[in-house]
Design a protein around this nucleic acid. Structure first.
Length: 549
RNA sequence: GCGCCAAUAGCUCAGUUGGAUAGAGCAACGGAUUUCUAAUCCGUAGGUCAGGGGUUCGAAUCCCUUUUGGCGUGCCA
């Protein structure tokens, strides 16, 4: 709707003077008296066209008044154009909302651009925690929204199943396994993984293998430990993600990148580009040439690659797979890493504009008002499963998505649990359930939409009713904003507002009145549309719409 | 030191990309239930948008600066 008004204004502006500033906006004003839509076109163009804002506004208003779409066009100080839409336009849109069902709000806005969203990518050394839960809620919702508005998004999880930390992980498992057979160490290594889940893994491994592992060579045994542990943790993570309703299109294994020689490939490209050199027995990447603050080590003096190499190789595959846009969703502790990666992309002559990084800020876990430090190695984590057990999927997803990615998040476990019945997500779901029960009741009174005659849409003439329709018309521009800014939290706010408008409407007006059949049917028609929009919005956030609460 | 992110009501946070009187939820206080679900609604109260300067018709929003907090600045990943 906004874009249509924008186009209309632009047309009449061009009639006045072709050389104009197109950079004006069409917005929904905060204050109802300012109309349904307002534009600053006259204010923006006043300097260029050498004309007073109010006079210019008047000229545009005169021209646009010829159209039937507007009930009125007013000019307000200091030169805003305020539009009120004709009711017929509202009714047309309302029909569209119901006819399109779950597809309402879909568009070709994204022009089928291929977008890869990498998120979570937690180390395969333990169960997923609440940091991953936030990333999961964020990445998955972004995916669903982009998909709805015509992008071709792709979800990927990168598994760091090679390198140092995996070796340490396997060693920790070995120690726990040995403990089961009476080989107790005096002290568990500080560097090792201390979590209780490792003991569980050891028990499982023991029931499968028994003492067989002691008869293997040390290398074989550690390999077996490693593959068993990685496999089990992967299953554990997939299981948690299923509970959270988060799926991936691809799980990319670092180990696979290594065995397929992609690391060497990336290194040789960098060398060909003349961006590497040797010093102190190590191989360096001359990243300062590309805006980094110092050169980085690629191959350590001991001959092993640093973590940077597989990461460059991994991103190389993202480019090679033909994505138009590459979104990395990372924790805030990785932002130092991006300058290096970006430098590498430039060195490989790849378009680093395509690479986009969203940093999800930290979560402070509060217990009794104190911040708890989380660390996998120290075994102090709150797992995604614990969270799901305590507050449930819907509340958890809403909780994480209801704030912008760049905001820090204080997570008070006690509060989250206690508040579960007061959580705003229930407010939205309740609106859906409430509408459902009204429709059920209407059926008993033999009122169904099949009997509805569209001529009676004009019964919906209360401001509250038109406002509800206006709000629903706004869905697609909210979704576009979410997609463009990578900010799905805007949708959470939107659905909460819509639910609130419905609750107020419900309290004020009777929907079913058997003495006024036409009016009742028109209102049923309206709230069915509201139900549809709530369900679409919640669905895009991965939240269910219960028929009953 | 340098870099990134933040600072809005008592608390947790929004704020449609520079628009008109800065909004929700929670907490507090007062009210509404023989009713289509009270998990709701109505009302009261709560603000120097961290401080200062600048840009212009107009700033919570953009620029500069100061302060405070988080994180980064490994031949760890």
């Amino acid at each position: 709707m906004k874009t249509k008004i924008y186009d209309d204004i632009l047309k009449s502006l061009r009639k006045i003077n072709a050389n104009c500033n197109k950079n004006f906006t069409v917005e929904i004003p905060n204050v109802a008296e300012h109309g349904d839509f307002s534009s600053n076109v006259a204010l923006i163009n006043t300097n260029i066209l050498k004309i007073k804002p109010r006079d210019l506004a008047q000229k545009i208003a005169d021209d646009l008044s010829k159209k039937r779409d507007f009930k009125s066009i007013e000019i307000a100080a200091p030169g805003f154009l305020n539009f009120k839409l004709a009711n017929s336009l509202y009714y047309k849109k309302l029909k569209k909302i119901l006819n399109e069902k779950e597809n309402y709000g879909t568009s070709n806005y994204g022009q089928r651009k291929k977008v890869i969203i990498e998120f979570i990518s937690a180390n395969p050394t333990g169960p997923l925690n609440i940091v991953s839960a936030r990333a999961g809620a964020y990445g998955d919702s972004l995916y669903r929204i982009m998909n709805h508005v015509g992008f071709k998004p792709f979800r990927e999880f990168y598994i760091n199943d090679a390198g140092n930390q995996v070796d340490i992980f396997a060693e920790s498992l070995e120690i726990r396994y040995r403990e089961l057979h009476g080989h107790n160490l005096e002290e568990f290594p500080f560097e090792g993984y201390h979590g209780e889940y490792i003991k569980d893994l050891a028990v499982e491994l023991n029931t499968i293998e028994g003492t067989k592992l002691f008869h293997m060579t040390e290398d074989d045994r550690l390999d077996r430990m490693k593959s068993f542990a990685l496999d089990q943790i992967h299953k554990m993570q997939v299981n948690s993600l299923n509970r959270f309703d988060v799926q991936f299109d691809n799980w990319m294994s670092e180990k696979k990148l290594r065995t397929e020689g992609i690391l060497e490939e990336a290194l040789s490209y960098l060398a060909e580009a003349g961006c590497t050199y040797e010093k102190d027995d190590a191989v360096f990447f001359a990243s300062t040439k590309f805006g980094d603050e110092k050169d980085r080590v690629l191959i350590k003096a001991d001959g092993n690659p640093t973590y940077l190499v597989p990461d460059i190789a991994y991103h190389l595959t993202k480019y090679n797979r033909g994505f138009d846009c590459i979104i990395d969703v990372l924790g805030p502790d990785h932002h130092g890493h991006i300058a290096k990666l970006r430098a590498a992309m430039k060195a490989l002559e790849l378009d680093d504009e395509k690479l986009e990084v969203v940093f999800l800020q930290h979560i402070n876990l509060l217990e009794d008002g104190e911040v708890v430090k989380m660390s996998k190695r120290a075994g102090k984590i709150v797992s995604m499963d614990d969270l799901l057990d305590e507050v449930g999927k819907d509340a958890a997803r809403y909780f994480f998505i209801n704030r912008k990615p760049s905001a820090h998040l204080d997570f008070d476990l006690e509060l989250a649990k206690k508040k579960s019945s007061e959580n705003p997500v229930f407010y939205c779901q309740y609106a859906y359930a409430r509408i459902n029960s009204i429709i059920k009741k209407a059926k008993k009174a033999k009122l169904t939409l099949k009997k509805f005659d569209e001529k009676n849409l004009s019964k919906l003439n209360k401001t509250d009713e038109l406002n509800l329709i206006k709000k629903m018309m706004d869905l697609s521009s909210v979704l576009n904003l979410c997609a463009d800014n990578r900010e799905p939290h805007r949708l959470a706010g939107y659905v909460h507002e819509l639910a609130g408008m419905f609750h107020k409407y419900y309290a004020k007006y009777k929907i079913i009145d058997e003495s006024k059949v036409d009016l009742s049917l028109a209102r049923l028609y309206l709230i069915s549309a509201v139900q549809n929009v709530i369900s679409i919005s919640l669905g895009l956030l991965g939240i269910s719409s219960p028929k009953k609460m």
